[in-house]
């Protein structure tokens, strides 16, 4: 699978997962629209950060190792500050629910786990299979 395909898969997965969170929130959360706004805000920033991460790494691998190390670390802190501003804004703004934003930001990790790590049914079957069984 190419890097572009991986990114598209993760983008689609993140949108689907957050759509699911949005639907579940409709039945669970009292104040629905701030929650939905939070999810939307969170997932957009998470996806933009993910794209920024790709651009950083794509550029870093063409550099000398020592320079790549400093470059990747400095870019990480820029993305970290962006995330910090986003969380701060969602805490301060009344019309955005901070829990929705956090869910949107973190959903990317769940999508990566689902699409890249736990993507084989045989893996789940083998968990409950005893080694002595043939």
């Amino acid at each position: 699978m190419s890097v572009k395909e991986t990114q598209v898969n993760i983008l689609i997965g993140a949108l689907l997962l957050n759509g699911f969170f949005g639907v579940v929130g409709f039945f669970v959360v009292e104040d629905y629209f701030p929650y939905l706004g939070g999810i939307l805000f969170g997932v957009i920033i998470a996806l933009l950060n993910f794209r920024l991460l790709f651009l950083t790494l794509d550029r870093a691998v063409k550099m000398p190792p020592a320079k790549a190390q400093a470059y990747a670390t400095s870019r990480y802190f820029i993305r970290y500050v962006i995330t910090g501003v986003v969380v701060y804004v969602s805490i301060r703004a009344q019309h955005i629910n901070v829990l929705g934003t956090i869910l949107g930001l973190i959903s990317l990790k769940l999508v990566i786990f689902k699409t890249q790590l736990f993507n084989s049914k045989a893996y789940f079957k083998n968990i409950f299979k005893r080694k002595e069984e043939k």
Binding site: L57, V61, K62, P65, Q69
Partner: peptide
């Protein structure tokens, strides 16, 4: 994570080289 990402990027650059 910042230190880790930097370290990984350095090793990645070595690998691509």
């Amino acid at each position: 994570p910042g230190i880790g990402q930097g370290y990984a990027a350095g090793k990645g650059a070595e690998g691509v080289g």
